[in-house]
Amino acid sequence: MPNSNVNPERNIRVATLVSVGQHPKSGRTRRAGQDARAVELGLKMAGTASRLIHVGDMAEPALRQYLGMGLPQLSVLQAGPDADAVPALATHLDEQPADIVLTGVRAESGEASGMVPYLLAERLGWPLIPRIADIQTIDNGMAEVLQALPRGQRRLLRVPLPFVATVDNAAPEARQYAFGPSRRGNFAVSLANTTADDERQQWQELPAKPRPKRLNVVKAKSAADRFKAATAKPQGQGGKVIRDGTDREKAEAIMALLVAEGVVR
């Protein structure tokens, strides 16, 4: 793997967008998991010079948890709960430019569509990389970014600065937040000119219904077929068994299967 410990560089401007998360079971507000990982990545890239941006209410106590990770300041673009965050973020980033904007993949509360980074990237005209695990190197205005794929796989991408990236759960875990720094950090509050999200006002938010499990429906033509499907044991129990032969032959049979399945190259 290429060298992945970049020293914090002061001249790279990293802005992390943070939201208010919620505990999946109790619903209590907290720092959002993916956002905290994004903050951690920002700290790795730019140290304490990386910025935090939040659109919403500064009175939310969970925001202090991000400051507790060791950052001196959090910019709050003060807005109501129904506000559309993207225009406020775009104007803020126009005024105070950044090279890398990090976000989580999806919010932990509300609609959680994960559209904010996409809309922001579209608005700013920057490339977007979803689900990154790490930013490995930056030189000559090009960044090499490690993208997380399913099944623990990784892919290396090269992208020019500035760009937007969403941080996957595969990124290094966020550090614990400490009480002292979370008290000492301060908020830089500015009033955001946002518009209310009217469309969402029409929608209804309900507690999540458990989704029905898909049943194994048997489409049979006759009653006898249905009866058979309901009572018969599934066929094909037990696979191939090799009892005789040398260890070598047995190992070769296993290897053949591994190669056929493509897990051994």
């Binding site: 619903g27 509360s109 509300g110 029409q202 309900l206 999540a208 219904k209």
Partner: peptide, 14 residues
Amino acid sequence: VCRGGSHRTDWQRP
């Protein structure tokens, strides 16, 4: 009907 954040809510929408 869409599943919301943390799978705690459903959003009913056109």
